[in-house]
């Protein structure tokens, strides 16, 4: 349970309750019966947490989406994919650890899986470049999608990135072209394609692997055209106004579902995915499985046609 001990700023009331419970737990050894009180406080803590998370806004959700203990690609992969064989390299220039992938089975179904990995320790964050891909990552994604298509395997992608890496080498090696090709491939593959935006869906780096038949978002994940900080620094020349930008850009799963940008929302455990990672991972696995079974009923050409129609219709329904 130690991982739930990192509290976000807006979770302060819960932190206070939990610390009271801790204190009482220490008293327990001293022959005073506090168990009734502890039970009461625990109930109160859960109740408050439930209420708090029901009304959190876009900026709070941004913090939850970026929570260091939120399940990452590797957690989903370990929890959901059996017979996993990691695949590496774009066959052009190099291997990109920010975007991982491979072959395996999800609930028995053979799949190609890929996703951004942010890393969960300082050392790993550096290896994975904080989940920000270079062109090689997107070129590897294209390669994996081509592989899936050739062997008629469904593709499952996990999106969790602040964005594509804005580096010198990335630009020299054609970051824009790599993203464009990945979008292009994802839209035209005959394979069934399910995307889960599990944390941050940051801009072009996210859509590069999210042009799926079914795009699902976790309840407290975010998906946006630019980070709230980036938007604030452009609009107000003040990155500190990220909270206002987060609100203005409508980045929550709930808003995006109402605009028809995404297809479904996966509910998180009380207090967010980081409070019960195992539960979150199994919810995600069940939902992906259901989507794959539904998509498997459709002929490949029909899937491609429906996918393209779906994206072409985004925004058109909003015309009054």
């Amino acid at each position: 349970m130690s991982f739930a001990r990192t509290y976000l700023n807006f979770e302060r009331p819960i932190a206070e309750l939990d610390s009271k419970i801790e204190t009482l737990l220490e008293l327990k050894d001293e022959a005073v019966d506090v168990s009734a009180e502890i039970a009461q406080l625990r109930e109160k803590s859960v109740e408050q947490l439930t209420q708090l998370y029901q009304k959190i806004g876009p900026w709070e959700k941004t913090q939850v989406a970026r929570h260091p203990l939120r399940p990452h690609f590797t957690d989903y992969r370990k929890g959901l994919i059996t017979d996993f064989t990691p695949l590496a390299g774009d066959r052009k220039f190099g291997e990109d650890h920010a975007l991982m992938g491979g072959l395996g089975r999800l609930g028995g179904r053979p799949v190609v899986v890929m996703g951004h990995e942010k890393g969960d320790t300082t050392e790993k964050r550096l290896i994975h470049n904080f989940g920000m891909s270079n062109p090689e990552g997107y070129r590897k994604a294209v390669r994996l999608m081509e592989l899936a298509e050739r062997f008629d395997l469904p593709v499952v992608s996990f999106v969790d990135t602040a964005g594509a890496f804005p580096g010198r080498g990335a630009e020299e090696r054609g970051q824009a072209e790599a993203i464009a090709r990945s979008i292009d491939k994802g839209l035209s593959i005959t394979s069934a394609f399910v995307s889960v935006i599990s944390g941050e869906g940051g801009s072009g780096g996210a859509i590069a692997i999210a042009t799926a038949d079914s795009v699902l978002m976790l309840e407290h994940s975010i998906y946006s055209v630019i980070s709230p900080e980036g938007c604030a620094s452009i609009l107000w020349r003040d990155g500190a106004r990220a909270k206002d930008a987060a609100k203005a850009m409508k980045i929550t799963a709930q808003d995006l579902k109402s605009f028809g940008v995404i297809d479904g929302i996966i509910e998180e455990p009380i207090g967010g995915a980081h409070r019960d990672r195992a539960d979150m991972i199994s919810r995600v696995g069940e939902r992906i499985g259901a989507e794959l079974d539904r998509l498997a009923q459709l002929p490949p050409a029909e899937r491609v046609k429906l996918r393209k129609e779906k994206f072409l219709n985004i925004g058109r329904s909003l015309l009054g």
């Binding site: 292009d184 994802g186 055209v225 609009l235 203005a248 850009m249 393209k308 985004i314 909003l318």
Partner: peptide, 22 residues
């Protein structure tokens, strides 16, 4: 770049225009 004032609807123009290229 993208038109921030349209949020993710702006981002969706990347796949939409790509479909037109296809």
């Amino acid at each position: 770049g993208a038109r921030m004032q349209e949020g993710a609807l702006s981002l969706m123009q990347m796949p939409r225009t790509t479909i037109a290229v296809q």
